[in-house]
Design a protein around this nucleic acid. Structure first.
Lengths: 354, 354
DNA sequence: CGCCTCTCTGCTCATGTGAGCAGGGCCGCA
DNA sequence: TGCGGCCCTGCTCACATGAGCAGAGAGGCG
């Protein structure tokens, strides 16, 4: 009873001490005089107050980061680096923050990559826009997956790579090919063309890759751009696809969802991403948690730039283990089943032509 | 342009420094090494961050206080002391916090008042309940306004004073009289009774007064207790009454709303409250802002215990100056106008009798 | 073009603060 | 009642920090 009472009294003292210290900027000595305790006790009270969460210190700034989450992510998934930004309520704002953080990160990477491989998409375009002019000197950029011309809106594919290169005073090398070809032969043919093959070859030599990922649903840029139809997406989802990485649709277990489709997808392969020294994933938002998980849990990126909700979702053991378990059992059915149905990909091309 | 750019860069640095300092517990020297600036600059960045509100330090505890507001209140209204507690969203909780704070204050007042004058009501009862047993030694309590017996619920009038005294190991002296008498003659008669008159006389000698205030509406304890009817309240409101202090209804300009009614009100007068060395007002909640303002702007209390919303409302210049201006112009009309109409207070008495 | 001023930088020094340690009171237990 | 263990207190000392100051660089103005 006595201990309870004194504990409560101590807590009150701690609160008073915290107020005087943090709000009134008094020294611990002065506080000691006011509260009639020694300054050492004041120090201890303040420590207690911090430990017990009575004092909440928050950094309110759009560019703030979540270093604790970054450390956890890095440790848990063996990443070279992790950047986590606080998530604003607004999804649009969130994407902007993540893109900004990715741009900041890119600016600060040492050593500066001489050649940077980039994919494209809404996210990457925002990253490109967020980069300051002159963010580096002489960084050349190479596109790592196809998709230059199909979408006519500015801010996709080509312009992304070009903008990143321009702002660093370097050259952009584009991959002059669709992301996904209609027929495997066409893909092989175009791939063997020196212009295209050379670019892919160059991409393989990039010191770092910057990429994002798409969700396997109809909001995908692949549907927007006409490479895939809603039916294709439905098919992919049935095969367990959670999203795409540099154009290649993967399942939760990190494997290719549909090898036939993948064979017709032009650009860098997943293995090249996996083995790269620096592959920077930029991803944010609720919808992309599944694909983000697939990527980080299977080593497809060495650096992640994301928001705190995504980070927490990735670290959350419940989901984490569940997804891991699911992926452990799935690969077999995924790869064996994927080979069987094929040649159902005429519609996307028609869609793109209209 | 250059200055803008470097200012932005500085802000970013400040954010990073703040993160490392407050979230990662690194020393300014270490941070300097990380951010490639000197430790002095880190210190400056942190100062900036604090000044510019990038760092938000909050003390989350039910017993926390708002020292800045307390200081402002004290300075603005010439108070001896001010206690401001953070306002929880819940009104019930808010009342409890204010009462608790008042109890804390009472415990800590030095010198300890040998004789404490108290009023009664819901708020004061909560204060009494919040006082710890043995909060002081030998503090006697005297009731400063009538109202012992009319309400039969426990926790009003008498029990408040008794509880406060008991918990301090002192004697309670009650005022054995209704708060408001039906007829002036009765009031004068009862007042001249030695039992009653003596108590009032004793109350005048109290070293400190503890009181709250009521709102001039039908939720008032005066209506509950049957001293006043809804019609009386309506009448009082027409005369500009904002609420009651120790049973006496006052207007925004701090004067008696209805002198005739006031003459029939038994207990300490406002002047005695005003001239007291220590008169502690305990008041909280949106509804009581107006009466709280009337009290503090006209010197009826020397100490206020309240919530932060009330405090801010009191300090808010817009309302503040408006009320001050009104009160500056009003006293004359208030005192002269109040004397004219009288003798219309039979109904309240009838109401209380029924 | 040169000077002036104003701000920002990196320093010295005094002060503020936290880690670690010895002593003392309080408890349970014999 | 005496003993041992425990926690809490107040201290020493080393380190971290903020105040104040001289010098350097960037603009602005004549």
């Amino acid at each position: 009873m006595v201990s309870t009472e004194s504990a409560a009294a101590n807590e009150l003292l701690a609160v008073r001490a915290a107020e005087l210290y943090y709000e009134e900027n008094k020294t611990q000595d002065e506080i000691g005089a006011i509260l009639r305790v020694t300054r050492w006790k004041v120090g201890r009270l303040l420590s207690q107050a911090r430990e017990r969460g009575i004092i909440r210190i928050e950094i309110v700034h759009p560019r703030a980061r979540r270093l604790a989450l970054e450390r956890e992510l890095g440790a848990r998934f063996g990443l070279k680096d992790a950047i986590v930004v606080p998530a604003p309520v607004d999804e649009v704002e969130l994407q902007a923050r993540v893109a900004e953080a990715a741009a900041d990160y890119l600016v600060s990477v040492r050593p500066v990559p001489r050649l940077l491989g980039v994919s494209w998409g809404r996210t990457l375009h925002q990253v490109a826009e967020s980069l300051p002019v002159g963010w580096s000197t002489g960084v050349n950029v190479v596109q790592i997956n196809g998709g230059v011309s199909l979408s006519k809106r500015p801010g996709t594919a080509a312009s992304t790579a070009v903008m990143i290169a321009q702002k660093a005073g370097g050259q952009a090398t584009l991959l002059p090919s669709p992301a996904i070809l209609e027929r495997l032969e066409t893909k092989k043919a175009i791939e063997s063309d020196r212009t295209v093959g050379g670019v892919v070859q160059m991409a393989r030599g990039a010191a770092a890759y910057l990429f994002s990922a798409g969700v396997a649903d109809t909001s995908s840029v692949h549907v927007d751009s006409g490479y895939l139809t809603a039916d294709d997406i439905a098919e992919l989802r049935e095969r367990g696809a959670v999203g795409d990485v540099i154009g290649r649709y993967i399942t939760a277990d990190g494997t290719i969802a549909d090898p036939e489709l993948d064979a017709r997808t032009l650009g860098l392969g997943l293995e090249e991403l996996r083995s790269a020294a620096s592959s920077i994933l930029v991803i944010g938002g609720e919808a992309k948690h599944a694909v983000a998980r697939a990527i980080v849990t299977h080593g497809l990126c060495s650096v992640i730039v994301t928001d705190e909700h995504t980070a927490r979702a990735l670290l959350d053991d419940l989901d984490g283990d569940a997804a891991a378990d699911a992926s452990a059992g799935a690969p077999d059915s995924g790869s064996s089943g994927a080979a069987a149905p094929s040649g159902h990909h005429d519609s996307p091309a028609e869609g793109s032509a209209s």
